[in-house]
Amino acid sequence: MKTEQNNGNYKTVDTCFVPKDYETLIHLAAITDPQTANEADVFRVNYAEAVEFFERALVAGVKRIVWASSASVYGDGPAPQTEGQTVRPLTAYAESKALLEVSAARLSAKYGVPMIGLRFSNVYGPGEAHKGKSASVVYQLVRQMRNGERPRLFWHGEQSRDWVSVHDVCRAITLATERGGSGVYNVGSGVATCFNNVVATINEQGRLDLTPDYIPNPFKGYQSYTKLDLTRSGAHLGYVPQVDLVNGIRELLTSEEINGK
């Protein structure tokens, strides 16, 4: 049994499908909430089922696999984070992605097919409404502040992230379907911006004046700083980010989903 949904030059299929007569498989499915309580489900969906799907695709003759890894594998590693440094996963989600990178490399060597893992940093942008509490922090802050709510940040709001627009992520995926050898590649903005500055930008671009409400951080395994080195992805994929955080926030502030239209 299979399900397919045409979307331009792409088709979306479920994992029961054995892909045949396709040149490239793009795999983005995962449990993405790093604080998900059921770790067994995380490893089953993000790792075991992904490996099984990859091997079925390779046996069926797929010529290239592009899949979503995550900058979460760096954990508390030094920044700017480079693809060659030792991974330090702090959550089950991050560990599942790190394990999948190892298996993807093994499958690539076994079948002689390029398998490209894209280490996305903190992705944000339009189209996140359905994700609920799993939506990006940028998206949630824009929505809250647009509704007149004070933004809630963990003390003292100085944790920093490499925020990357979904438009740049889509561009990176497209590039990876066309070029690049097996391995992992960073996909981010190359810039670290703290949560306080995200709030300040939303205030400025939205003509708002809402001060943060600081609360304790209840989470273990919390990354405090991400800033990705984009040298390798630029050289091998031709990836260069094009949407800075100011313009990305401006787009969200004017989007229909944020404004309830």
Rank of each mutant, 00 (worst) to 15 (best):
D21W: 03
E49N: 08
D21L: 01
N38I: 05
E39S: 13
A50T: 15
T36R: 13
D21R: 11
A29Q: 10
I31N: 08
A30V: 15
A30C: 11
F53Q: 11
D21V: 04
I31P: 03
N46R: 07
P34V: 11
R44W: 00
Y22I: 15
D33R: 12
Y47E: 09
Q35W: 09
E39C: 12
L25P: 00
N46M: 08
V42P: 00
L28G: 10
I31D: 10
A29G: 12
T24F: 02
L28S: 08
A48K: 03
L28M: 14
Y47C: 11
L28Q: 06
A37T: 09
A48Q: 08
V45I: 15
E49R: 12
A40R: 13
V42F: 04
L28I: 13
V45K: 12
A29R: 12
N46G: 06
A50H: 04
T24E: 07
D41C: 05
T32W: 01
V42Y: 00
T36S: 11
E39P: 05
F43G: 05
T36A: 11
Y22E: 11
E23N: 10
Q35M: 02
V51N: 01
A48D: 03
I31S: 09
Y47K: 09
D41Q: 13
I26W: 09
R44S: 06
V51E: 07
Q35H: 09
T32K: 06
A37P: 01
V45T: 15
I26G: 12
R44Q: 08
P34T: 12
A37H: 04
A40L: 14
F43I: 09
L25Y: 01
L28F: 08
I26T: 14
I31F: 02
T32P: 07
